[in-house]
Simulated assay, not measured.
Amino acid sequence: MAEGRVMGGLILLRPWWLLALPVIAALAVVLWRRRARLGDWERVVRPEMMAALRRLGHVEAGRRGARGLWAMAAAGLVVLGLSGPATQRREAAAFANLDGVILVLDASPSMTGAEAWGQMLTAGRAAISGLGARPAALVVVAGDAYHGAELSADHRELAQTWQLVGPGTVPDKGSRPWLGLEKAGEVLREARLVSADVVLFSDGGGLGPEALEAAAALVRAGARVSVVAPEGVPPAEVLARAGGGEVFSPREGVALGAFLAEAGRTRLERADYPLLFLADHGRYLLLLALLPLLAGFRRRLA
């Protein structure tokens, strides 16, 4: 696990390197105070002769001190680079095979015929909008479960497919949400995801022992199960508790989107993948440190 300190929008991966900056600053102050001195020559040579030597170009006051200051500037940049200044890159494509979301939509007649069906679809669109770079898949279930959309980072296509689900989408009558959770487990295994969020959209029908068993299997596979259901549905709360997730009402689509936006990052950080979310810019500072070094080594051509 990487250690770091947050400074505004900047994260320092190795902040202990900053302890060297006061030492470099002290050395720079000493060199600055000595920049115009020429050692013991200023004590033994008369001021008039020293001034004449300077006019003739035989003495360049402060050249050694200036070179030292350039070296201190380079050292400061090196220390800053070694401290690991980094920024978050939540949209990086590197997460595609690590963390995903599987939406399981109950499209049984009791769901599609209810007044809350439109709110369910709206909550789903909010969930999709909060996915960021996380790939997502859709499983549609009623009497049986089917892949509605394969795991992909193409959220636009997923949203279009989501909006098309309605009465008659699943020809098998009934309400067997555990089959949808089992299908989500298949997606999880086939994609070899390190972690995942499974979100079940249900009215509570069929959330019995089979669903709890399927949720437990998902947890063992590294997933977390949340439920979107109307308020006051005890089976939904029991299932979410067993799956380690949360319960959202159909009106809490924005909260669901925010939950999914942060959930993947938190889970991967706990799994020791934090650096995948950070872009270390220290190497650019190391390259920049070459400039004061070049300035310190420049030579007079004439």
Rank of each mutant, 00 (worst) to 15 (best):
E3V: 08
G4Y: 12
V6H: 08
V6N: 10
M7C: 06
G8K: 07
P15V: 06
L21A: 06
L21K: 10
L21F: 12
I24Q: 04
L27C: 10
W32I: 04
D40Y: 09
R43Q: 06
V44H: 05
E48Q: 05
E60G: 11
A61I: 02
G62F: 12
R63E: 02
R64Q: 08
R64K: 13
G65E: 09
R67P: 09
R67W: 12
A74R: 00
A75L: 07
L80W: 01
G81P: 04
L82D: 00
S83Q: 07
T87K: 07
R89F: 11
E91G: 10
A94I: 15
F95D: 01
L98I: 03
I102N: 11
I102L: 05
L103F: 07
A107P: 01
P109R: 12
P109G: 11
S110Q: 04
M111W: 03
A116T: 09
W117C: 14
Q119N: 04
Q119R: 08
M120H: 10
L121C: 12
L121M: 10
A126F: 01
P135R: 10
A136W: 00
A136T: 00
A137F: 15
A137Y: 11
A137P: 13
V139Q: 03
V141G: 08
G143C: 14
A145S: 06
Y146R: 00
H147A: 11
G148Q: 02
E150P: 02
L151E: 05
D154K: 15
H155G: 06
E157W: 02
A159M: 07
V165T: 12
G166S: 08
V170R: 01
R176T: 03
P177G: 13
W178K: 01
L179T: 11
G180H: 02
L181A: 15
L188N: 07
L193H: 05
S195L: 14
S195F: 15
D197S: 12
G205P: 00
A211S: 15
A214S: 14
A214F: 04
A215P: 00
A216P: 01
L218Y: 08
L218H: 11
L218G: 03
V219T: 10
A221Q: 11
A223G: 10
S226I: 02
P230S: 08
P230R: 06
E231F: 14
P234I: 15
P235I: 12
V238C: 00
F248R: 01
S249L: 02
L256Q: 02
A258V: 07
A263K: 00
R265S: 14
R265L: 09
R267H: 06
L268Q: 06
E269S: 14
R270Q: 11
Y273K: 07
L275N: 08
L278P: 01
L278Y: 14
A279L: 10
G282L: 02
Y284M: 15
L285W: 08
L286N: 05
L291R: 06
L294W: 11
A295D: 03
A295I: 03
R299H: 01
